[in-house]
Simulated assay, not measured.
Amino acid sequence: MNKKIKKQDWLKIPNLLSYFRVLLIPFFVHSYLIAQDWNGHLIAAGILFLSGVTDAIDGIIARRFNQISDLGKLIDPVADKLTQVAVAAVLIVNWPIMAYLLVLFIFKEFSLFIINLLLLKKGQVIDGAMWFGKIGTIVFYCCMFILVISPSIDSTLLMVLILTTAFFQLAALVGYLSVFFNLYKEPNV
């Protein structure tokens, strides 16, 4: 379990795309907060869409061109989580009820952080995102994209999007807890 970050990993294309996603966050936040009409929200949604596309592309490039690295395994999820927190946080400006989703998201991520620390002490690790985590992320981005581009959305649709996102976040947490308990029961490595 001795993993090292190699010097050449810093400039691999998937990692550069992860850095780019982190750099997009302040531009997204700014564009959303200053948006005063549909065009302004379209710009914010475009930045969010670009972030989502680069997230998908970095994974494809990493797998297809054998550019998977320990650094990438670290920065890709960090870029995802920072983006997701930023999106949920700025949406609170329009819809204060989003605070509940933000709290759920932070609780889920903090729980997964603790789980990984406990596994690390045993010499184990959940290696990469599982399918249920990926689905939760896709649902999150789709629902949040709709909210970003539609600042005057109907309250019923708002609740459907928030509850759908919350359901898939909770499902991902339950899935990861199941994986954790199975790994934790295994003897020490």
Rank of each mutant, 00 (worst) to 15 (best):
M1W: 01
M1K: 09
N2R: 15
K6M: 09
K6N: 06
W10H: 14
W10A: 04
N15F: 01
N15L: 11
Y19N: 06
V22W: 03
L24M: 15
P26E: 08
F28K: 03
S31Y: 13
Y32E: 05
L33S: 12
I34E: 05
Q36C: 03
Q36M: 09
W38M: 04
S51V: 04
D55T: 08
D58I: 02
G59Y: 01
I60A: 03
I60Q: 04
I61N: 10
N66S: 14
Q67I: 11
I75V: 15
P77A: 07
T83Q: 11
T83I: 00
Q84D: 06
V85P: 07
V85W: 11
A86Q: 00
N94M: 00
I97C: 05
M98E: 05
A99S: 11
A99Y: 00
L102D: 05
F107Q: 13
E109I: 05
F110H: 03
L112C: 04
N116L: 14
N116S: 09
L117M: 13
L118N: 07
L119H: 07
W131P: 15
I135Q: 07
I138C: 11
Y141K: 00
V148Q: 10
I149T: 14
S152I: 13
S152C: 01
I153N: 05
L157I: 14
L158H: 12
M159L: 03
I162Q: 07
T165V: 03
A166Q: 10
A166S: 10
F167R: 04
F167W: 15
Q169P: 00
L170A: 08
A171N: 10
A171C: 03
G175Y: 10
L177P: 06
L177R: 09
S178H: 14
V179L: 10
L183A: 08
E186Y: 01
